[in-house]
Amino acid sequence: MITKKEIEDMSKLSRLGLSEKEKEKFSKELSAILEFVNKLDEVKIDKIKPTAQVTGLENVSRKDSGRKKTKKETDKLLALVPDSENRHVKVRAIL
């Protein structure tokens, strides 16, 4: 069971704004999903290693060097920025 309080914590962690009605709806739905995934408790996993990369690749590396973007490329990126000034991304004060 996921409580409304847990939903509020989760929404804060994930920066998701939720209305009161949504909090109730998601607490119900997520509880059902959680109950469903709890089926994994039946599986014995004591000595099993976890899989994150399924084809077995390890430590793929490249030279630690960047590539300078052309003006055309940066123009395209800047055109997508909701709020900019003098070719800089404008952000609200964090502190």
Partner: peptide, 9 residues
């Protein structure tokens, strides 16, 4: 972590 282990199985 449990799900990743079940993924291995």
């Amino acid at each position: 972590l449990k799900a990743q282990k079940v993924r291995t199985l």
